[in-house]
Simulated scan of single mutants.
Amino acid sequence: MTDLKPSFKPFTLGSIVATPGALDALSQSRILECLIRHARGDWGQVCEEDAAENDLATCEGFRILSAYAIDPAQPCAGFGDNCVWVITEADRSVTTLLLPSEY
Rank of each mutant, 00 (worst) to 15 (best):
M1F: 03
M1V: 05
T2S: 13
T2H: 10
L4D: 14
K5M: 14
K5T: 03
K5N: 12
P6G: 12
F8H: 09
P10A: 07
P10F: 07
F11H: 05
I16P: 09
A18E: 11
A18I: 00
P20A: 10
A25H: 07
E33Q: 12
E33A: 13
C34Y: 01
L35G: 05
R37W: 00
G41Y: 06
D42Y: 09
W43C: 09
W43E: 10
G44L: 05
V46T: 09
V46L: 09
C47Y: 01
E48Q: 13
E49C: 10
D50G: 04
A51T: 00
A51V: 03
A52H: 07
A52I: 05
A57Q: 05
T58L: 05
T58Y: 11
G61K: 10
F62T: 08
A67L: 04
A67W: 00
Y68E: 07
Y68A: 01
Y68M: 01
A69G: 08
I70L: 09
D71T: 09
D71M: 07
P72E: 14
A73K: 14
P75Y: 00
G78K: 07
F79G: 08
G80Y: 10
G80F: 11
V84D: 02
W85D: 02
W85A: 06
W85E: 08
W85Q: 04
V86K: 09
I87A: 14
T88F: 06
T88E: 08
A90K: 15
A90T: 04
S93T: 15
V94F: 12
T95K: 12
T96H: 09
L98Q: 08
L98T: 07
S101K: 15
E102D: 15
Y103K: 10
Y103G: 15
Y103Q: 12
Y103C: 07
